[in-house]
Write a protein that binds this DNA or RNA. Structure first.
Length: 423
RNA sequence: GGAGGAAUGGCAGAGUGGUCGAUUGCGGCAGUCUUGAAAACUGUUGAGGGUAACACCUCCGGGGGUUCGAAUCCCUCUUCCUCCGCCA
């Protein structure tokens, strides 16, 4: 959520920046400023009435003490009028505040100046590319065929038990999943991240805190009976640990990592490119989250990118990094780097990580602040990235590591799997 | 699931209708003393809104009510503790 004071101070610059998202904020900005004006004047009026009422109450107390009951009762009359108007004013204030928040919740974050203009993923800019694309045999298979051939992932069985998009991992497939999770967590912990195990359901306040609500309401599974949401990413519970916190400057930076299953309804996204592991309703992911001082957050983003690069290098997967354009940038993000692994057998790039700086956008909703040594308080910056999302990494490994003898396990994973070939 | 008890500032813990945004202790910060530190002493120290700055307003788990006036009384929800039951 943007801060009203910032909108007021930087209106023109913000309007221009939001154009990169193809978001015309002209109207909503003036709505925000109008509502804020109303809110402040209403509050001022209300405060005045309350102050008067407080004065009278004190006076009445004194009069009772000194035994001047007649005078006290006269004053009592006066307060009843005040009560009427304070009631009206506080209702108006509450309504205005609510309206203001509703508008603010629906304005996306201001893109960083590095974000290229653009309308779709076509306009994302490749900023880095590394790794060798393997030469595969002519009869190389996509991962969903490999999964069947070696009986390591059973999509039909998941259909039977739950529905499409809920695969069952079997035998060496299940073991490989577990190996990847452990390997990712170990790498992140070695890089200074603290490991967490988080709840898989969150309440409404947490959904708003990180910005999934109200923007992505339809994309989360909602347990209506208890008004809880299945998490779409570990980002939500992890970042919300710091909701309503006043940290001290030397608590920062904070670096967390956690493995969770992730649940996404992905409503309306059926069709091409969703076969096999490419798009699922439930998938596993290891996430990294950082809380940073504003002046350090972009250096931290670069560090996160390096962390993910390091993992992909060790896995020896060919990958590239894209800087997302305005049209593809997430609602809450200022700057996002997407990582994609090249799937040789499918001959396409698969997104496996998204690494973002949210600046103060989440922190403002979360009320996540820190106190500097000089006592001043300010919003922290939040960042997160996948390190990494499992299914497409798995797809990439299966497809790129296939040989006539079976699927080789990347060297770095062998200590975790206990085998080096899936056959 | 049943029966009781509790929720106050970073922490501990007073406060049962008016001068309480809240005694006190610890912690934090600043100072005195000291070569330096510790100890001791002195001062200072919650959050949000609002203002050019003051003033002023709101907040004692959340919501609602009684009252001229609520941390204090009533209702309700949530959470925690103790006892009983059940249980991976």
């Amino acid at each position: 959520m943007l801060q009203v004071a910032n909108i007021r101070a930087n209106k023109e610059a913000y309007l221009k920046a939001l154009k990169k998202r193809n978001f015309d904020a002209e109207e909503v900005f003036s709505e925000v400023l109008d509502l804020d004006e109303t809110r402040r004047s209403t509050q001022a009026e209300l405060d005045e009435k309350l102050a008067e009422s407080n004065r009278l109450s004190k006076e009445i107390g004194m009069l009772f003490k000194t035994g001047e009951h007649l005078k006290a009762n006269q004053l009592k009359q006066q307060t009843s009028e005040l009560k009427e108007s304070t009631k009206e004013l506080s209702e108006k204030l509450a309504a205005t505040t609510m309206a203001l928040n509703r508008v603010l919740y629906n304005i996306p974050n201001i893109p960083n100046e590095l974000v290229p203009a653009g309308t779709s993923e076509e306009d994302n800019v490749e900023v880095f590319k590394e790794g060798e694309v393997p030469q595969l045999a002519k009869d190389a298979m996509p991962h969903w065929e490999l999964a069947k051939k070696y009986d390591i992932i059973d999509f039909e069985l998941g259909n039977k038990i739950t529905g499409a998009g809920f695969p069952v991992y079997k035998g060496k497939g299940a073991r490989l999943q577990r190996a990847l999770i452990s390997y990712f967590l170990d790498k992140n912990v070695a890089a200074g991240y603290t490991e967490f195990q988080m709840p898989l359901m969150v309440n409404e306040a947490s959904g708003y805190g990180t910005g999934q609500l109200p923007d992505k309401e339809g994309q989360m599974y909602h347990v209506t009976e208890d008004n809880l949401y299945l998490i779409p990413t570990a980002e939500v519970p992890i970042t919300n640990m710091f909701r309503d916190d006043m940290l001290s400057e030397n608590d920062l930076p904070i670096a967390c990592t956690g493995y969770t299953p992730c649940f996404r309804r992905e409503a309306g996204s059926y069709g091409a490119h969703v076969r096999g592991l490419n798009r699922l309703h439930q998938f596993d992911k290891v996430e990294i989250v950082r809380i940073e001082k504003p002046e350090n957050s972009y250096a931290a983003l670069d560090k996160m990118v390096e962390q993910i690069k390091d993992i992909l290098r060790e896995l020896k997967l060919p990958y590239r990094i894209l800087r997302l354009c305005g049209g593809d940038l997430g609602f809450t993000s200022s700057l996002t780097y997407d990582f994609e692994v090249f799937s040789t057998a499918q001959d396409r790039w698969l997104e496996i990580s998204s690494c973002s700086n949210f600046e103060t956008f989440q922190a403002n909703r979360l009320k996540l602040r820190y106190k500097s040594a000089d006592g001043s308080k300010q919003l922290a910056h939040t960042l997160n990235g996948s390190a990494l999302a499992l299914p497409r990494v798995l797809a990439g490994i299966l497809e790129n590591y296939q040989t006539p003898a079976g699927i080789k396990v990347p060297d770095v994973l062998v200590p975790y799997t206990g085998f080096d070939l899936i056959d």
